[in-house]
């Protein structure tokens, strides 16, 4: 058997990726392949990708899958793993150096490293393989996160490689960066997906940890660059689900020429299990009920008459 292993890519720049989602149909037009970059400078309390927060690899633990073999205890140089009763083990993630030694020996899938350094060539191998699906559907590559632009150099290289391969490219950003950083990737992006989470500055800071001042300024500037933008607004009960907020957003967007579409996305609680696996606390009071369709439609009325497409999910 020829196995074809052993490529050495150590010299090439790498990006830290926590997932490559194929048949991605919610991150831009058509059937896409979305590359999720690790690291984010927002802390939205409803985030369903908490593994994207840290810009470093992390150990993710799924205790239900543990078979109590103890291999991780032997493999760990930092003393994170202990066995209490010889059956199931306990993990102290505060001691974890994210070296990955335990995950490598875990045969049960209980310990999984989140975050993998990948070269442009390695990512493009997957992205290009899916290219036939892009052709008929108008799909392509989306760089998402986390905040992909925290790795702007690498993301720009990846988008460029995709464009050179004739693949449609989209950049999904929260926009909380110096505008010059955003500009790095723009020449290689056919579309920008831009998050707009709340219009009130204090409210935005309360629920995401950062002010929206720079974000809205960036959106304003970007919308005049000539690149098409899809704005994405998650509807978070008790946070931004007021007509007042939506009307303010509608007014803000109405003057922006690049905005081609607005997606209103209902909150969902699918990320709760991930918090546990990463040893993170999820305040139960912040696990909300998804807004019903009728509520989504009510809020959408604020955008009636806009000259961009409105999509209520």
């Amino acid at each position: 058997m020829q196995t074809g292993r052993g490529n050495n890519q150590a010299e090439q720049p790498t990006g830290l990726v926590f997932d490559i989602q194929r048949f991605s149909v919610h991150d831009g037009p058509g059937i896409r392949t979305t590359v999720f970059f690790k690291g984010c400078n927002l802390r939205c309390f409803w985030c369903h990708n908490p593994e994207s927060y840290s810009p470093r690899p992390q150990l993710s633990v799924y205790p239900d899958k543990c078979v109590g073999c103890g291999r991780c205890v032997a493999a760990c140089a930092y003393g994170c793993h202990t066995t209490a009763d010889g059956v199931k083990h306990a993990v102290d993630l505060t001691r974890c150096a994210a070296c990955g030694a335990c995950a490598k020996v875990c045969v049960a899938g209980s310990l999984v490293m989140v975050g993998k350094s990948m070269t442009v060539a390695r990512i493009m191998k997957t992205v290009a393989a899916d290219a036939p699906f892009y052709k008929n559907s108008g799909g392509g590559l989306t760089c998402s996160g986390g905040e992909p632009l925290l790795q702007a150099d690498f993301v720009a290289q990846l988008l460029r490689a995709a464009k050179e391969a004739g693949i449609h490219t989209a950049l999904d950003t929260a926009g909380n960066l110096p505008y010059e950083v955003i500009q790095q990737a723009l020449p290689y992006a056919d579309l920008v997906l831009f998050d707009c989470k709340a219009m009130d500055e204090a409210a935005h800071e309360r629920v995401t940890g950062v002010s929206n001042k720079r974000i809205l300024e960036n959106l304003g500037r970007l919308a005049r660059e000539g690149i098409p933008i899809w704005v994405r607004t998650p509807v978070i009960p008790g946070t931004n689900d007021t007509m007042e907020n939506m009307r303010e957003e509608a007014e803000f967007l109405s003057g922006l020429p690049g905005v081609k579409r607005l997606d209103l996305l209902p909150y969902h609680s699918l990320g709760a299990g991930k918090y546990r696996s990463l040893g993170m606390e999820l305040d139960p009071s912040k696990v909300l009920t998804a807004p019903p369709k009728s509520e989504m439609e009510r809020l959408a009325k604020a955008f009636e008459g806009a000259d961009y497409e409105l999509v209520v999910n």
Binding site: V25, G30, I31, P132, F133, K135, N136, S137, G139
Partner: peptide, 13 residues
Amino acid sequence: ENITNFLMTYCND
């Protein structure tokens, strides 16, 4: 649309 595109791509391409 997406599933239709999938089918067309899978069969034709």
